[in-house]
Computed example of a mutant assay.
Amino acid sequence: MELYDKANELAKAIQNCKEYVELVEAGKVLAEDEKTAHLVQDFLIMQAQLAYAESMGNKPIRKKIEQLNRMAEQLRKNETAMAYLQKYNRWQAMAGEVYQVIQNAMAEGMSILDK
């Protein structure tokens, strides 16, 4: 049970984390502008799709990269979008590091998959 207790502590720590709280607040502000919120969502989805395709060994499609760049240019002109994306990127980096710590702690038990 101690592991579950620690997991619940981690969940509370996440919810109280300054970077996470700022992301949630920026998300609320972003949600007030539906058009910008959709643009940010589309941008993040396309960015993830391109990253996934690249990780699978596929070369990014030039047309998609150009589209992503056009979207990024639009977003750069929007303070609300940029504020959200900055907080989103900061949180993603932090969450990734936390996930890596957890993954490393479980690595030995998963080592059979390395063969």
Rank of each mutant, 00 (worst) to 15 (best):
Q92F: 01
M94D: 09
N104A: 14
E19V: 13
S55V: 03
A13D: 10
Y84R: 00
I102K: 01
K115E: 12
A107Q: 13
V98R: 03
M106G: 03
H38Q: 15
V40S: 00
M71F: 09
I45R: 12
D42S: 15
V40Q: 02
R90G: 06
A13Y: 07
E54Y: 15
A72D: 03
A26D: 06
A81F: 00
D42T: 09
M56T: 04
Q41N: 08
K63A: 12
N89F: 09
M106D: 03
E9C: 02
V40W: 03
Y52T: 12
K28Y: 01
K77P: 06
E32L: 11
A95K: 08
R76T: 09
Q92M: 09
A51F: 14
H38S: 15
A93Q: 11
N16Q: 15
M94F: 14
E22H: 06
G109N: 15
N8E: 01
A48W: 05
A105R: 04
Y84E: 00
Q15H: 03
L68A: 10
A105G: 07
A31Q: 08
V24M: 06
A81S: 02
K18L: 04
A31M: 07
A95F: 14
A95C: 07
M46N: 09
A107C: 08
Y88N: 08
V98C: 04
A51L: 15
E9P: 04
A95S: 10
H38N: 15
F43E: 03
L3C: 06
E66S: 13
S111A: 13
V98Y: 05
Q100F: 15
